[in-house]
Design a protein around this nucleic acid. Sequence first.
RNA 1: GCUCCCUUCGUCUAGAGGCCUAGGACACGGCCCUCUCAAGGCUGUAACACCGGUUCGAAUCCGGUAGGGAGCGCCA
Length: 470
Amino acid sequence: MSATAEMPAVTRFAPSPTGSLHLGNARTALFSRLWAARTGGRFILRIEDTDVERSQPRFLAELLADLAWLGIDWDEGPGIGGPSAPYAQSERGALYARLFTQLEAGGFAYPCYCTAEELELSRKLQRMSGKPPRYAGTCRVLTRDQRAEREHRGLKPTLRFAVPADRILSFQDSVHGPQSFASNDIGDFIIRREDGTAAFFFCNAVDDSLMGVTRVLRGDDHLTNTPRQLMLLDALGLRHPGYGHVGLLVGVDGSPLSKRHGSTSVREFRERGFLPAALLNHLFRLGHASDIDGWLAPGAMPAHFRPAHLGRAPARFDEAQLLHWQKEGVERMSLAEVGSWLGAGDPPEFVELLRHNVTLPADAAAWRKVVGGELPPLGESERGVVSAAGPGFFAAAAAAFDQAPSDLKQLTRILKDRTGRKGAELYMPLRVALTGLQHGPELGPLLKLMPPDLARRRLSHFARNHAQDS
RNA sequence: GCUCCCUUCGUCUAGAGGCCUAGGACACGGCCCUCUCAAGGCUGUAACACCGGUUCGAAUCCGGUAGGGAGCGCCA
């Protein structure tokens, strides 16, 4: 639309390897990737693993695998490298150290010797007296001697950013429009932890700028954090990326997406047999209005991604809609693809037969049982069908089966002559007796796949007036 | 508590003062097709949170109310 929206965008996804890929993160990763792709820019993957306690190699491997499964690839980052390497923040310590000294030298930051307990208490007190819980600034005014004394006592300081007074921080949010915040509402915040590692506000902002990111797309939860990062960048003389904050992904009840809403990670959907393209199509339309409603092959998504149509309101993740895309995805697979997706080594004729009746691999398992195993007990409606047909019908059916085993066409012809029934009245009781259900793949081929004695048994079972007891 | 954000059919959304008796998609109902389901075709139900204001005219602008959410962490 506007000229800026079409300039090559450098975007990024900056996850922490502290768990498997969450749906909300997958969505912002997708949007960022698409934004870069649509404008001919670059997409960077950066690993924010400064929290050594929670970051684990196992999670990183999962993260990369989840991204790969979704088909979200990156132009710079782990495994590829690039001009801004390294792309793991745990390896960028030396760089951060230089910037910390620069900030301290310029008077933009100061060591803070307050302990976690002291800070906790201070916040509690502030809350109780109805004040916003902000750092009181205790260590900001320490003299050189006072600092030396604390060092001498063996206290290890954190580094705090000295938030300037009376400043208004304004920026143009690409999703929310113009924003502005007062620096007086913001307390001095920690940019380096006691253990010397860089804190989120710092390394996240600094790396975005240093890596040449031009469009930061992230969740709404970061909107009020943005002014801190702006001040930090200003103190360092680094340029600001553009920011865009998309509405959060929430559960069907509108509360933050959590376990009780069911599956919330990409991995869970993958394990349940969802297709990556299906998940992508759903995510693509959550908090985003594309110009077309129908199925999009992942490769076509960049052309239909509209950054100007990113949503401010939270979007509910409704699995019913994902199911729709899943059906679309299954319909679009080749026979061989469906076969390997089901992953059970089914014969091609079986796959061909049930492919339109299956949206998840679990559905196929049910049909496998229909063909070769036990039938589940009949439902109320199915019992109705059976008793309406009557035992005589099934006795005739069993007899007809003996004349034309496993041949539905012949069997129905004979049965039609003997009973005078036709259409649904003829087929439905047969379907229920043979499959236990009123719907499913074509009955003829289904019957051919069944062992003849099994089919015969199912028919004669209902000839003995067993409709009620099942 | 303070600061900030959000609010159109059940869901995802279109809509940037008249084109809106509010459009599309999913879901749901009906009809057609069909041995069934699905697919396909046709069709139906269903929303501007509320109250004021500005205006000839408001879903769209302004103010307030309500309800949701986020941030204020040595988590990211």
